[in-house]
Design a protein around this nucleic acid. Sequence first.
DNA 1: CGCATTTTTGACCGATTGGACAAACGTTAG
DNA 2: CTAACGTTTGTCCAATCGGTCAAAAATGCG
Lengths: 214, 214
Amino acid sequence: MDAATDAARPKRRTRIQTQKREVILEAALEVFSQHGFRGATIDQIAEAAGMSKPNLLYYFRSKEAIHVTLMQRLLETWLAPLKELDDVGDPMAELRGYIRRKLEMARDYPRESRLFANEILQGAPRIMPMIEGELKALVDEKASVIRGWMAAGRIARTDPYHLIFSIWATTQHYADFDVQVRAVLGPRRGGDGRFEDAARFLEQLYLDGLKPKG
Amino acid sequence: MDAATDAARPKRRTRIQTQKREVILEAALEVFSQHGFRGATIDQIAEAAGMSKPNLLYYFRSKEAIHVTLMQRLLETWLAPLKELDDVGDPMAELRGYIRRKLEMARDYPRESRLFANEILQGAPRIMPMIEGELKALVDEKASVIRGWMAAGRIARTDPYHLIFSIWATTQHYADFDVQVRAVLGPRRGGDGRFEDAARFLEQLYLDGLKPKG
DNA sequence: CGCATTTTTGACCGATTGGACAAACGTTAG
DNA sequence: CTAACGTTTGTCCAATCGGTCAAAAATGCG
């Protein structure tokens, strides 16, 4: 039951090991993000990686080890946009930039978003420590930055945590609920332009809300 | 591979059948929402329903039949808040009411929200027809209502579809990503008050956005 | 080359899964 | 009582799962 920590100490790795582990992780991202952890099978991942199951298990101890390694790498990518939120920049421009970056990630890395969503939905059984650790620490830090902006009267006073949640929710929605979004918008409005439409809408929402001008 | 349509034609049902099917569906909601479709086992559902596996399979043909029946019922509950959005009411009050109702559903029926999210995440393999049918039709109708409000200058002009998406995303987030929300907020801010905090934040966001008063 | 190490594979295993089935049990109407 | 029908269960099965293992194949190296 102990967490399979393949990256615990820096093991010596041959060139082939490094390569193949990369191939496996890419294949696992594809499979896990489509079927979830329990829904995915080692055979599927092995096939997607172009190797036999025992061969795959030569590079990773277990299915869980693959998943843990994948989630660790993912979290870095995942937190990057928030890390860029800069204390000294213009508040509204910083927030707009953050929303734009998150929306771009939903567009360009939907598999990563779904993998993450799947894990959280199941109660984060394998990554809770990372949530309570790195992720919470970063959010606390940035919430504090945002609170500073509010105290200085540079943006409206509100709850910075729920502000961050709302940005996560609205942007990741376009990756996690993609099939629903496309089905509802239909072929015309649901085509390539939907991310631009979303960006325009969110910009207006976070800027002025919905109250009519006047 | 044909959809198990237990409710296709109105089969005769004894009192016991009606009762037990209800018990099974409640148990299935609990189990499916926690582990997803593939992660859940018939044994788990049977145990949660207080009966043996063969007994459960006497009332439902298969695991998939349970899931389909569950999703059909769920969709009704799920669309109810949007159905209440009233053309003739005050636009901002109507939208605020809709957000409130959706947030209450996230608070009071998180299992239903997670079950739905899980299904969409996997690509909606079992409920795509309902998404493209009932759900899309209702959204189209209400988007048209909202567009009417915009044309009349009663709320700001923007994309009504993405407005609805953003309300879904921000409210359901508190059910689907609950463990993350609670972990980030910590025991103090993540307690019972988090839904009221969220309601206050969202009300302000949808009303005025984040621009400082000036 | 020859030897050691790394990589790959086929065969196999125990556990779990969704589901089938017939027999047993309970209930009710005649 | 008893025949008919609805309900429940124990047992079983084939398929699939994650993972092991020993042996073969490939590779690196002096």
